[in-house]
Computed example of a mutant assay.
Amino acid sequence: MSKNKKNKSRSFIDRLPKKYILLSFIIIGVIAYSSVLNGEFIFDDEILILRNESIRSLGNIPKFFSDSITSGAFIDSGNFYRPIQMIAYSVLYSLFRTDSFIFHLLPVVLHSFNAFFVFLLIKRLKISSLAALVAALLFLLHPVQTQAVAYISGLADPLGLFFLLSSLLILSGEKSLSPIKKNLQYALGLFLILLAFLTKESFVVGGLLLAIYTFKDWKDKTHPEFQIRWLTILFSVILGGAYLLARATILNFTKGFGLATVETTYTQNIWLRVSTFISVIWDYFLLLVFPKDLYYEKPLTIFSTIFSLRGLFGLATIVSLLTGTILGFTKKTIQFLSPALG
């Protein structure tokens, strides 16, 4: 097939330069969140930025790796450890002082980049460009993202996701590199996963996500990258385990297993935590399908049983996801082992 015919067979989206698609995401993101750009510092922004002495000097960056994020405001009751988030605040403060516009603009731009990364990652799964674009735009514009993007103190979410998605893109990227460049590529991917860990605790799932995303390549065990890719996954899991161990010991500022020191019935009873977690899956489903009542800090509701409609829905959702994952894992494992089994 000639080059011209091949280009004509590609969709309009595929023919667009990626930089234009990225620029479009940024423009759409900024327009969608334009109403928050002139917003003031609110709630935890005062503690993390306005009252935080540590961010006022870049020389304090080493302290961010040994202190909680509230220590700079002389608050010792927090157990949040997010050094990369605090470094970002410190850099912004050193350049723009307390210009809330810039502090709002950064998460909006990061969120736009993340939507673009989602688009690229979905395309690499051999899904149509149109479907990838629709999914990425849904990610960019869905109202459930509002708090993470519009709230300055929520920077850890788009920033950590930026590192994690960047890592996935790099680790699943160019395959025709020299051995040295390939090793550097995987080292950079691991480093970005580590940055995601250090941005927010929940991104410790990075190794698992990398493994799931790599499922598509299991059948090609003869590929020269097979071993190094799975070694990378192993190292990312080890990094995650080391991070969790550190958070439970030397980086556990309150000597508890929560992120705050306030004790409630919910934090004292493991069954209530499990049953509540399962039951509120219904609420998350509603937020995704019918995003309404999106307000800050909803009252804590405790569910003591899973034997209710919402509890059974949550349980069914978990079982379905686990079953799908196990079946997918089993299928790939069979494909992986079939040559050896004859």
Rank of each mutant, 00 (worst) to 15 (best):
K5P: 06
K8C: 11
K8Q: 15
S9Q: 15
S11H: 11
R15T: 06
R15F: 03
P17R: 04
K18C: 09
Y20I: 02
Y20T: 04
S24W: 02
I26A: 01
I27W: 09
I27L: 12
G29I: 05
S35M: 11
V36S: 13
V36R: 10
F43N: 12
F43I: 12
D44Q: 12
E46N: 14
L50D: 06
N52E: 06
I55F: 02
S57A: 03
I61R: 01
K63F: 12
D67M: 15
F74A: 15
D76L: 15
N79Y: 01
P83N: 04
I87S: 03
H104L: 01
L110C: 00
N114S: 01
A115H: 02
A115Q: 01
L120A: 05
I122M: 05
L130H: 10
A136M: 12
L138W: 15
H142I: 14
S153G: 13
S153P: 09
G154Q: 02
D157H: 03
F163K: 02
L168D: 02
L171M: 11
L177Q: 13
S178P: 03
P179N: 10
A187R: 12
L190R: 14
V205R: 07
L208D: 08
L209T: 08
L209H: 11
W218N: 14
T222I: 11
H223F: 04
T232Q: 09
L234V: 14
T249Q: 05
T249N: 07
L251M: 08
F257C: 03
F257I: 09
G258R: 11
G258P: 02
V262E: 14
V262P: 03
V262I: 13
E263R: 09
T267I: 04
Q268N: 11
N269V: 05
R273T: 11
S275G: 06
I278E: 07
I281Y: 12
Y284H: 09
L287N: 14
L288S: 10
P291C: 05
K292V: 09
E297Y: 13
P299V: 07
P299G: 07
L300I: 10
I302K: 07
S304A: 07
T305M: 04
T305N: 05
I306F: 03
L315N: 00
L315Y: 01
A316M: 04
T317I: 06
I318H: 01
V319H: 02
S320G: 05
L322I: 10
T325E: 09
L327N: 06
T333K: 14
